[in-house]
C-alpha cells in the first residue's frame, strides 16, 4: 500500500458548529422578526431589507478587494449585518441613507478595523449611530404600522418619556403593532428567534439574561417609587430596542467579552446604561449607546476578568 495518508496535527475530530453555521442560525432566528416587520411595514420593509443586505454584501466585497483580503461575502456575516442594520432603521428612511449606513457599518466599523473578528464595535450599531448623528431628522421619523407615509407616530418609549402617557396597550406592544424601528417592534418574533439561538447554543445566555434582568429590576424599582412618571418593568422589557439589542446585538461574539464573568458584567452594564438613558437622559431610547459603550470597554473587561489560574 502506498504511503499517502493524510497527516495533520491533532485534534482529528471537530465539533460540527462553524462560523457559517452560526451565521446561518442567526439568519434563521432573525426570520420571524423580519416577517413581522414586512407584515407591519409592508413594502417599506421589503425595500429597506433588500437594500441594506445587498449594500452590506457589496461594500464587504469592495473593501476586501481594495484591502487585498480574501472575499468572504458568503460567510454570512455581511448578510447578518445587513439584516440587523435594516431592523434598527425607521421604516420611512430614504434608501440612500440606508446605503450610507451600510457603508459605515461594513467599511468603517468592520473592514477598517481588520475584518471579521477584529472589530471593536458592533457594525450595525455603529452604522446606526452614525446616521443618528448625521441625519437625525430621518432617524426620528416614525410611522405607525400599516401606513406607508411617514405621519409622525411617536414610539411607545417616546410617548412615555415626553408625554408621560402611561396608557400602554401591552398586547399591541408584545405583538409589535406599534411604531418603531423596522425589526424591533415585535417582541414575540424576537423572543422566538432568541429561543432558537439559545437552543442551538449559538449565543450564550449570560448576556441576554443579565441585560434584561438589569432592565427589569431597575424599571421595577423606579416604577414602584414613582408609578406616575416611570413605566413598569414589562413595558421597558418589551418596548423599543431592548429585546433585539439583548438577543441579537449585545450577544455578537466579536464585540462582547470572551470570559463568562466578563459577559455578566457586560450584560449588567448594558442594562444600567440603557435605563439611565431611558429614564434620565435626553433620548427616549438607550439600547444602542449602551451596547456601543460596553463594546468599547470589552477589551478591558477581557483583561480584568481573566479566569483564575488553575491550581492557585
Amino acid at each position: 500500500m502506498e504511503n499517502n495518508f493524510y497527516i495533520s496535527q491533532g485534534p482529528h475530530q471537530f465539533t460540527n458548529t462553524s462560523v457559517q453555521k452560526m451565521m446561518k442560525d442567526v439568519i434563521i432566528a432573525l426570520a420571524p422578526a423580519i416577517f413581522a416587520s414586512i407584515y407591519f411595514f409592508r413594502i417599506r420593509a421589503v425595500i429597506l431589507f433588500a437594500v441594506s443586505i445587498v449594500s452590506c454584501m457589496a461594500f464587504e466585497a469592495i473593501f476586501q478587494l481594495f484591502m487585498k483580503r480574501k472575499i468572504t461575502i458568503l460567510d454570512g456575516s455581511a448578510v447578518v449585518t445587513g439584516m440587523l442594520l435594516a431592523m434598527i432603521m425607521p421604516p420611512s428612511l430614504p434608501i440612500w441613507t440606508c446605503i450610507v449606513g451600510s457603508l459605515v457599518a461594513i467599511g468603517l466599523a468592520k473592514q477598517l478595523f481588520g475584518g471579521l473578528g477584529a472589530n471593536i464595535f458592533n457594525p450595525a450599531l455603529l452604522g446606526r449611530a452614525f446616521l443618528m448623528a448625521a441625519f437625525p431628522t430621518y432617524m426620528t421619523r416614525w410611522n405607525m404600522p400599516f401606513t406607508l407615509d411617514a405621519v409622525t407616530g411617536a414610539t411607545p418609549l417616546g410617548l412615555v418619556k415626553f408625554t408621560q402617557n402611561l396608557n400602554i396597550n401591552y398586547q399591541e406592544l408584545f405583538i409589535g403593532r406599534v411604531s418603531g424601528s423596522l425589526g424591533e417592534t415585535s417582541a414575540l418574533a424576537l423572543i422566538i428567534g432568541g429561543i432558537y439561538l439559545l437552543i442551538k447554543k449559538t449565543i450564550d445566555w449570560c448576556i441576554p439574561l443579565a441585560y434584561i434582568a438589569t432592565v427589569f429590576v431597575i424599571s421595577s424599582v423606579t416604577n414602584m417609587i414613582a408609578p406616575d412618571t416611570y413605566a413598569g418593568a414589562v413595558f421597558h422589557v418589551l418596548a423599543g430596542g431592548l429585546l433585539i439589542g439583548a438577543i441579537f446585538m449585545a450577544t455578537d461574539p466579536v464585540t462582547s467579552p470572551v470570559t463568562k464573568t466578563g459577559r455578566w458584567v457586560f450584560g449588567i452594564g448594558c442594562g444600567l446604561i440603557t435605563m439611565i438613558i431611558r429614564l434620565w437622559g435626553g433620548l427616549p431610547e438607550g439600547v444602542m449607546y449602551s451596547i456601543l459603550l460596553m463594546n468599547a470597554v470589552t477589551p478591558l473587561l477581557n483583561r480584568l476578568t481573566r479566569p483564575r489560574r488553575y491550581g492557585t
Binding site: Y6, S8, H12, Q13, F14, S18, V19, M22, D75, G115, L116, G117, A118, D204, P253, V254, T255, S256, P257, V258, T259, K260, R263
Partner: peptide, 13 residues
C-alpha cells in the same frame, strides 16, 4: 476526514 481552513477568530469565547 476532517480538513478545515483556519478562519479568523470570532472571539466567541
Amino acid at each position: 476526514l476532517e480538513i478545515y481552513e483556519e478562519l479568523p477568530c470570532i472571539r466567541c469565547g
